[in-house]
Design a protein around this nucleic acid. Structure first.
Length: 373
RNA sequence: GGGAAGAUUGCCGAGUGGUUAAAGGCGACAGACUGUAAAUCUGUUGACAUACGUCUACGGGGGUUCAAAUCCCUCUCUUCCCA
């Protein structure tokens, strides 16, 4: 299922290929996020033309709306959304964290109120696997308990115990009810910012023999140093021959750090969200297309970018679309940002293959960090 | 010709004697965004000054008052109604 093709000499970085039900995925990979069954502003064909091989969707959101009856009738999310490549679905574990005001952690699952209509729901780890079975996820994530920074060791340990218990229940349900050749399942390492808990979490999950391992609970507000410390500790203790997925990350600089630590997969709302808020990613860092300085700027967003947007439109025009609140502004910026991330990941992969990852990283950052970012 | 209402800081628009450089909205300027309750959110927006502050401001002019965007007189303009 997962094959490592190249390893970097000076770091834990690796380039591989992940064979999933719909198609194979070259790693390291960035997965665009399509929470509601759509990568916001995109048609599937626009993602195909960029060679996007896998996107992420969200069980929690799909379960609440449109609801599993609709997905079942449509024969799964792929058909429903006209996306015929891979889908990884998050479990809703992150919503346990981000919607914590309306979510209660119980021993055997989560109780929550719908953020849409306030209705009460309860889901066990097995229910979440079942939801992802109906969705038809190529990779399903286990239900986990994601925690914020600055909680006590005791709280972190408690959340970790919950995560492990749920992981075990999820794995059992998966093995008994799922076509394991068609749908894969990843566990999620938690443990907050305590290394011994991270290690313990990793070992407990490894015992359950997942198809891949994710690291959760990072990039939730901690400093870059803390992030670096935890990722460089946690990634290498995960099985070398299984895909490693860092959830919710990220920006190019965080991805470089993480690839170096041995991470293969990423997802993040960042490029699409900031695009809708007028920020574009370029060789020279992030630019805010609303800024007055682009009013008469006839140059493309990024001279070195080969995307449709950069080949056809000026900063001045894109600024105008944002100022005029035109929906195409979001579309153009999103298209460019996803293209940027894809081509960035391609270059990361190539640099690993040609054994100059370290040099690529240094060179990329020397330009990218010019504008801060 | 007669009658009525009104003119507020880039725009719209609150405010009817003193906590008013003046609500709120829009616009403008800038910032944030990391497993998406986000086409969202935050800040600034009279001038000068890093700042303490100092000026100039509610159509023009003139009054009343310790104090006026708010009261009085007058002029100019705008809108509406009746002829």
């Amino acid at each position: 299922m997962f094959e490592i093709k190249y390893r970097d000499n000076g770091s834990n970085a690796r380039a591989g290929e992940l064979k999933l039900y719909h198609n194979s995925v070259k790693t390291p990979v960035f997965m665009p996020v399509g929470t509601n069954g759509v990568v916001k502003t995109f048609f599937p064909k626009e993602l195909y033309e960029m060679d996007i091989e896998i996107i992420l969707s969200n069980s929690y959101h799909i379960y609440l709306r449109p609801g599993m009856d609709v997905i079942k009738k449509a024969n799964g999310l792929h058909k429903f959304s006209a996306w015929n490549r891979n889908i990884l679905t998050d479990s809703g574990g992150f919503q346990v964290f981000s919607l914590s005001k309306i979510v209660k952690i119980k021993n055997d699952g989560v109780e929550f109120r719908s953020h849409i209509d306030g209705s009460k729901h309860f889901l066990t780890p097995g229910d979440v696997v079942e939801i992802q079975k109906t969705i038809g996820s190529d990779i399903m994530m286990v239900l986990d308990h994601c925690t914020p920074p600055n909680i006590s060791y005791e709280k972190a340990k408690e959340a970790l115990d919950t995560t492990t218990r749920w992981a075990s229940l999820s794995r059992d349900y998966y093995k008994n009810n799922i076509d394991t050749n068609r749908q894969r399942q990843f566990g999620i390492v938690q443990g907050n910012f305590f290394k011994d808990l991270r290690e313990r979490s990793a070992n407990e999950l490894i015992n359950l023999d997942f198809d891949g391992y994710a690291i959760g609970g990072l990039s939730v507000g901690e400093t870059k140093d803390v992030f670096n410390d935890i990722i460089s500790f946690t990634a290498p203790i995960l099985p070398v021959d299984k895909p490693r997925y860092l959830m919710g990350v990220g920006t190019p600089e965080y991805i470089l750090t993480s690839v170096e630590a041995g991470i293969d997969m990423f997802d993040c709302v960042f490029p699409t969200r900031i695009a809708r808020n007028a920020s574009v990613l370029t060789k020279y860092g992030r630019l805010n297309m609303r800024n007055e300085k682009y009013k008469f700027d006839e140059s493309p967003v990024d001279e070195s970018c080969g995307c449709y947007v950069c080949k056809n439109f000026s900063k001045s025009y894109i600024r105008h679309l944002f100022k005029a609140n035109e929906i195409s502004a979001s579309r153009l910026a999103s298209y460019h940002n996803i293209y940027f991330m894809k081509s960035f990941m391609d270059r990361v992969r190539e640099s690993i293959i040609s054994s100059n990852f370290a040099e690529f990283k240094r060179e990329f950052l020397s330009s990218y960090l010019v504008n801060g970012s």
